[in-house]
Design a binder for these strands. Structure first.
Lengths: 339, 339
DNA sequence: CTGTTAGCGCCTTCAC
DNA sequence: GTGAAGGCGCTAACAG
């Protein structure tokens, strides 16, 4: 085994075949005879040849790599999206570079600059919560790399986006509780300057109205949906003894609220039914009674990647906006009970 | 703004300065006058120049990039390790490429081949559960890239590893339960052909022996520690009405067992105390009574990266084995109760 | 301080 | 089917 700095020229010399032929053989070109191809492959293996993608990418001006920017990989929703991205990318012969912005604009800028300087063929990005301007993304268009936004859509030049219909998802969740017999449904809403959370609130309202329940402002909360917020809201609810349902705009608040409610003797879901978004399976192990709205996570990754690859291949950036259907997952809370 | 294919030569021509000087200026070399440096930087900005790292890396034969192979990013333990890796890498001017093996050898092989062909400067890897031979890692040594194993140590050439002392962690957990007054402690063990799980079992035994409780084979289970395994073991425990403590070799089994036990009226932690490894914070929201052994996750990432960078810089691969201390996190189950 | 020269490893016309 | 030649964009001697 060699020291590893083996190049096509080493193979070329060892075999007395020109390096261009070696290159062709290594790329499985049809214009090389089967016998020489075999000879070359054998020698390459013997010498421990390792292709240098830097050189080849420089020459061909493409990297077969997709850059992915994600706010935080540890969030269940995002790691599932990534799974969908990776599957689709690998199936189509692309590599994936995953980077976390940690919801910081500064980091997002550094990351995207690195991706640009490494000339990824395209970008999949869910922008950070701090991101309001998009100059750092212009460089991608600059060298012809298409951009697809996922989950957090953006109006940026000719870029496309894939997301879900928040209004519809929230509507579905609320209607589900109504059909279960809930009459006093609370909404744990997020910051109302974010479109996504506005839409979730509107979906909640629309479902109430449709079923003749009417919207009660006392039943609407707007917080950052943290663990603490969940507990605080649960405490308020205990005072409204009539509340029999919660539609939470995220999972964190839903779960911590449930936990608090149970600790004070409220039975879930008999007394109060809860719906959250994108619950980690681990919460289902512990709280099977928590109903979930699935944001089409895996499919979102697949769809976004498919669109991106299509644009890379056809060398164009046509604006495209895909809205995926959300899915209501109702768990069976009796799973472990009837043994 | 240009189409983006701007090179140093374009700047060179526009300014009538040689491209080598442009290159130096762009790299902030001291051997360029301040005035020309400013002129060059201004023109670069004006033309929308974007450095091509492919070319530069090819030339310098280094990429300033660390490859990271992780079994699964969605697992809380690993995503925390990654946070530690990223922080350390960025602070030292390195980029990070994260790849998931999904515990599959096949994928690990493909991933490492890509990392090699892209000539990462070093590798951080936690091998997949399927990995028993290491040929696919030889290419790294081949071109001089050091390897550091984290969490799952390996005897591979001159590579280093960073892990925790599983024996000590398990011992600590078991002793903790004993000191709480538990006399009949069960161990949910993993596959015993894996050293890690052997060590955890031995730590459990040693603590029992130290405190004069003795090891009872009926109290030891060996499974894959899945959710279903957790429930199945919990069911068995219910039959041993004496059991008052569980040391689980992972979190999944611990959590699902707890859930089952509670569903059949066992109170946690009064009737049965449970310790698991690396619980996701989400489980703490729902089950604060679950005690946790923290595998020094963030620090493991930091430490492994520091070692790797040190080896990259000094261009050597000295075998190093670092064992980090684990930490017992005892939660307060009354957190939400006394309101 | 700046220019000249050469080449990193690979691929791709263009010949033959 | 194979070889010769040139260059992707950048940097590192070596001069001056």
């Amino acid at each position: 085994m060699n020291t590893g700095k083996v190049t096509i020229h080493d193979i070329s010399k060892a075999l007395n075949i020109d390096s261009s032929t070696v290159s062709r053989a290594l790329n499985n070109s049809v214009r090389v005879s089967k016998t020489t191809k075999e000879k070359i492959l054998a020698k390459a293996k013997e010498l421990g040849y390792q292709r240098n993608s830097l050189a080849s990418n420089l020459r061909t001006n493409k990297t077969n790599t997709i850059g992915v920017v994600v706010p935080r990989i540890s969030r269940h929703f995002f790691s599932t999206v990534i799974a969908g991205i990776e599957e689709t990318a690998y199936d189509n012969g692309y590599n994936v570079v995953i980077c976390q912005s940690l919801e910081q604009l500064k980091r997002e800028q550094i990351i995207t600059e690195t991706l640009v300087s490494n000339r990824v063929d395209g970008l999949l990005i869910s922008i950070s919560m701090q991101t309001t301007s998009f100059e750092h993304l212009e460089a991608f268009e600059g060298y012809g790399a298409p951009i697809v936004f996922y989950d957090r859509p953006c109006n940026f030049k000719n870029s496309s986006s894939v997301s879900i219909d928040d209004f519809e998802a929230s509507f579905k969740a609320t209607e589900h509780l109504i059909l279960q017999g809930c009459n006093h449904i609370v909404h744990f809403g997020g910051p109302q300057d974010i479109t996504l959370y506005q839409n979730r609130k509107e979906g909640y309202k629309a479902a109430l109205v449709k079923h003749g329940l009417g919207y009660n402002p006392d039943y609407f909360f707007s917080t950052k949906l943290s663990e603490e917020d969940g507990v605080a809201m649960a405490k308020k609810i205990v005072k409204f003894s009539t509340v029999d349902g919660i539609v939470s705009a995220n999972d964190t608040a839903a779960i911590s609220a449930m936990r608090y409610l149970k600790s004070v003797g409220k039975h879930i879901p008999k007394d109060i039914a809860v719906v959250g978004f994108n619950n980690d399976p681990i919460s289902a192990v512990i709280e099977p009674s928590l109903t979930t709205i699935n944001q089409a996570d895996f499919n979102m990754g697949k769809k976004a990647t498919m669109i991106l690859i299509e644009q890379i291949k056809n060398n164009r950036t046509t604006r495209l906006s895909v809205v995926l259907e959300s899915e209501l997952i109702v768990r069976d809370s009796s799973k472990y009970k009837n043994d």
